[in-house]
Amino acid sequence: MTTQTDVPNTHETLDTSGLLCPLPVYKAGMVLGRLEPGQVLELICTDPGSLQDIPAMARQRGDTLVASEDLNGTQRFWIEKGTKQ
């Protein structure tokens, strides 16, 4: 778990609260697709499956999961868009 102080500057926030996987993965992929390399997406999820799926998605896409937290059933991920896409 990380704290907010570790979190880099966020360029866009996507709140997928209430959505079940893989919808958060899909929507996050669409937003990351339009970000520039090095920009960071803050992703908010409530599906526990996100704890596995979001890191897997970031690895698969070549992005970097720079921070995450899991508090009271709400997960936050900060994903930096990779350069090789």
Binding site: G18, L19, L20, C21, P22, L23, V25, Y26, G29, G49, Q52, D53, A56, M57, Q60
Partner: peptide, 23 residues
Amino acid sequence: DLCPVDHPKDGAIALARSIAAQD
């Protein structure tokens, strides 16, 4: 392979289910 953990080859099916489940 959208959702590689639970649905390694059925991403479209899993996504349709999650769209149907929203709201």
